[in-house]
Design a protein around this nucleic acid. Structure first.
Lengths: 342, 342
DNA sequence: TGACTATAGGTAATCGATAACATTTTAAGT
DNA sequence: ACTTAAAATGTTATCGATTACCTATAGTCA
């Protein structure tokens, strides 16, 4: 139960004032070299540790940044967080994690909680686009706390974002399916009120159009990102009078479900049905029937978001730069969409 | 750029003192009901938010807890963190994440940093057992900050831990392989200076002994937790004069590598070679050749660790309870160790 | 030697909330 | 009306570090 050592303890021991100790520790030039050394030595010998809370209160900066994600136990978000942590650690920032579980109310709560906790910035991936929590966002902006969106963004003036080009991601994945000779390509989308899903869908659609394939509304199914949802989608799609011969899924999990259901029905992948997913979750590569997927370079996304934060945090309040970083998606072509027969 | 509202602002507006405001906001019984209401209303209308940093400095509690893991982008650790966050969120604690990347130096750094940041507790999974960082641990204990190990523990007097019964995990996985008729069972272990790996190994060994199978040292390979390591292990094992007909791997990733290598060599799984892994990573269930694995119930582990922390955080310093929670591992039997032939 | 300027360090306010202790107001009892 | 207890609020120190402002000492130069 070592007592907490403060600069006052050091001061008392050396018969000087706390101010001098503070200055010595902070390399203030107004301190004689000999006293500085003396203070430094004494501080070390007493095992002094600066109280970050006192510093935070005084300076108004907590050296904590908040990260809000729908959930942490998905490889994508975990990897982004890893990137953020790695980039900010050398700068002395600690990362506080909050999960919304896709619940906008939790999202608001998290925003308020982080602001209350005096974080120096908030990096987040939005959980849904309703306007219920507008006031929470407004609160952040009013407090002049840097806010940066990654992956799932939201249009707010003055707010920077780091995303990937989802349109292009949808486009190249669909294009690859077309290249394999698929003619009737279905699309499993997520909640299209979220831009990422909207854009992937638009990329998909554009790829069809550019390649002379008619867009069929019936081929687009909106569902959750789960294995079960993928299976159900196949159930529905195969009931159509012209069932599709490929599917581009906005979710790797749904893509996996689709594959499982197709196998169940003895439909040959990729020769009779091609599948492509999105996110490049680790399992897509591990499977026997490895799944073609669009990589979002989450690590890079996290690092980049952190860098954007660092750029903004020291700027004076008046200069508000809105920076939009868009990373390029990369298609990892695997067995699920690589036909051996030509 | 809304100015920060403090209790002094409220006090000034109402012509009372900050103390009264503080008491009113904290439901102190010494306040007249009418003033309390007045203060509450005014606070709300002025959009007052308590400054948590000031509170933290005054009370000495930051309401932050630190979590140290080797890395966050593994399903196991991410899930544990999820459990921790979910359990602590309702209690007003924020979770600060640190990664060690299996580097003991980073581990020490993280410990010091968290203590500097005045966290109210540290929950961690140790990254290696060297004694270099003993002083970092001692520092935590001296500061009387609750420390709780999860999964990868370390023997320190007075420190609680939440682990699974790794011995049993190793035992039941091995037993299942024996039940399938496997006679020569190999084991892929991790760094045995870590207890978890040591215990899984011991469980494996005991299962062999209990079932009249002679333990063969050559069947034990120590390696990293990676797909590549699994492949290499198979390379080595199949060179032996009596190659094994099953493998129990302490890592799902290595188990996957083993399976890939076995397939490469056209060895029939599970009929000619059974495989069992550890951790129950999501992909083990998704694969075509699904992998038998020992589940560590990470979510529960996280929740439990959080609960142990909550129990300890309010205890007075003198009562130091050392609580050892041991969760039961659960074997998920899948194709990789389910023989159709008998 | 006197005036002046660095140089080094001290004093005290500040960040915002809390709480022990002190004081005033209100209510109750006789 | 007067004492006395109870209730409500005010005063002030505190948590630990920083810093604007002030003071004291030493050194410089004419």
């Amino acid at each position: 139960m070592s007592e907490k050592i403060t600069i006052y303890d050091i001061a008392k021991k050396l018969n000087i004032t706390a101010a001098t100790v503070s200055r010595a520790l902070n390399n203030n030039p107004k301190i004689k070299e000999s006293t500085r050394e003396l203070v430094l030595e004494t501080a070390a010998s007493m095992n002094y540790k600066q109280n970050k809370l006192a510093l935070a209160l005084k300076s108004g900066r907590s050296n904590n940044i908040g990260v809000i994600v729908p959930r942490i136990d998905s490889n994508f978000f975990a990897s982004v967080i890893r990137g953020i942590e790695e980039e900010l650690y050398p700068h002395g920032y600690q990362v506080i994690i909050c999960q919304t579980h896709e619940n906008p109310k939790r999202e608001s709560e998290n925003l308020y909680t982080l602001i209350d906790a005096q974080v120096d910035g908030i990096l987040m991936s939005v959980s849904g686009v309703n306007n219920e929590n507008d006031s929470a966002f407004r609160n952040v902006l009013e407090k002049n706390v840097p806010l940066i969106f990654f992956d799932r963004s939201k249009h707010i003036e003055g707010v920077s974002s780091v995303t990937i080009n989802d349109f292009k991601g949808g486009y190249i994945a669909t294009k690859q399916l077309i290249n394999q000779g698929c003619k009737n390509i279905a699309h499993l989308s997520g909640d299209q009120s979220l831009e990422i899903f909207k854009n992937r869908f638009l990329g998909y659609k554009q790829a069809l159009i550019d390649n002379g394939i008619e867009f069929n509304e019936k081929y687009v199914i909106q569902s959750k990102s789960s294995v079960e949802a993928g299976k159900e989608a196949i159930d529905i799609l195969l009931e159509l009078e012209t069932p599709p011969d490929a599917i581009f899924s906005s979710s790797d999990f749904a893509a996996l479900g689709a594959i499982q259901e197709l196998k169940e029905r003895n439909i040959n992948i990729p020769d009779d049905f091609c599948v492509a997913g999105f996110s490049n979750e680790p399992f897509t590569k591990f499977m026997e029937m490895s799944i073609t997927s669009v990589d979002q370079s989450p690590l890079e996304m996290g690092r980049m978001s952190a860098r954007v934060f660092l750029e903004q945090v020291d700027k004076t309040d008046t200069i508000k730069i809105e920076k939009k970083v868009v990373l390029a998606p990369e298609l990892h072509i695997r067995k699920s969409s690589t036909r051996t027969t030509s």
